[in-house]
Computed example of a mutant assay.
Amino acid sequence: MNIIQVCPYDLSIPGGVQTHVTQLSNELVRKNNKVVVFAPSPSNPGSESEVNCEIKHLTSSTRIPWWGTSIDVSVLKPNEKSQILQFFDEFKPDIIHFHTIWNPVMQTQLLWMLPSSVKKVGTFHDTPPDRGLGKYIGANLMKAGAKYYLPKMDEIISVSETQTKAMGADPNSLPDNFRILPNGIDAESAKTIEKESNPDDEFRMIFIGRFENRKGVFELLEIYRRLQSEMLTKKISLKLIGNGPQYSEMNGFINEHSLDGVTIHKDVNDQEKNRLLLNSDLMIAPALYGESFGIVLLEAMALGVRVIGYGNEGYLTIGEKYGIENFPSPGNRDALFALVKQHIKMSAEAVKKLTSKGLDIAAEHDWKLIAQKIEYIYSR
């Protein structure tokens, strides 16, 4: 099949949708499909996610803040529309797969331009905030958007029950063309990385995510500050992987409180991210709200790394299988602090048992399995 994957986000900036699009595209190429990824022009060309197919940069984008996170806004100009129409004539796509199609406004423009013969598939990834003003405005906007876009899709994919409900759909009573299909992970690419030896008296923690309020990085920094004053049996360290608007503020906090062992790693590529993750003991995901699934949890589990975090609705999609005791209520900093201490002291037998459970859960989400299901959706 000739397939176009449309990513509304800059592929040089790490994110769950970007990872989903690139890894799905790679697996579809491995399965002998011809794939082209449509995306905005990268702000940092050397840091684009690795993908084994052509990336067609359609237009520029502007990143704007949006309820504690950010979105890329891009608009196709008349000359860019002409080039895309010419590409449609030459490539003759069978499928165009939109991701978070309501992200303004490039994808909507593409939808209006498509030849009628092209099958339209939409994967919906995001959820509105579950607190504050955004809880009410965001929820209503998403349901209104769903009423407009869902009827225009031949096939609909939602990444979780949480996301499905956010669109106003009932997970127990979905139409024939609507499926709940979780995110996938590419565990194979990380198997070539060698794990470094870890001294028994050292405990290495890691955070991976955007440096913004929604992801709760300051929740983790406060916990680390408290840990430093504890009489722990092991030396601790914390790696923060990502970038975002709170970067300077984080640096100030780390210096002000003399947080030894904390390092920030900006704009790392996928291989370096996996290397840092593989050589960690515990991945902490303190996202407060707005998570639809939690692919970062699966990526850690696939590498044999334990995970804990706040139990927002998206993370609980995985957390309920892994062990809900590892996911206290969002914002319950005392509970998360106690949980970190518990993992520092965890016996080798308990570590092995939890790691094994994580590997089993991750295996269920291998892209080889997920992509096979998506190919079936394409062929319907």
Rank of each mutant, 00 (worst) to 15 (best):
F124P: 02
K147R: 13
M142V: 04
K120G: 07
I156A: 04
K143D: 04
A146L: 14
K147V: 15
K119C: 03
G145P: 06
G138Y: 06
Y148M: 11
L150F: 13
G132W: 04
I137R: 09
K152D: 07
Y148C: 08
S116E: 12
A139K: 13
V121Q: 01
V118N: 03
P151D: 08
A146Y: 10
G134I: 00
I137F: 11
G145I: 12
M153A: 11
F124A: 05
I157K: 10
I137E: 04
A146K: 11
M142N: 03
N140Q: 15
N140R: 09
R131K: 10
Y149Q: 05
G132Y: 02
G145M: 13
T127A: 00
L133F: 14
K119R: 13
A144E: 15
G134K: 03
P151W: 10
K135E: 08
K135F: 07
K143S: 14
L133C: 07
D130W: 03
A146Q: 08
K143L: 13
G138L: 12
A144F: 08
A146I: 12
D154F: 14
K135C: 05
T127G: 03
K135W: 11
Y149W: 12
T127M: 01
D130E: 01
K135L: 09
S117P: 01
L150Q: 10
D130Q: 05
Y149I: 15
K120Y: 05
K152P: 10
M153C: 13
K119W: 00
I137S: 05
K143I: 06
K143N: 13
Y149V: 15
P129V: 06
G138F: 08
L114C: 08
N140H: 11
L133R: 13
L141P: 01
M153R: 08
L141T: 01
P128C: 06
M142Y: 05
A146T: 06
L133S: 03
Y136W: 15
L141Y: 14
L150E: 09
Y136N: 09
A146R: 08
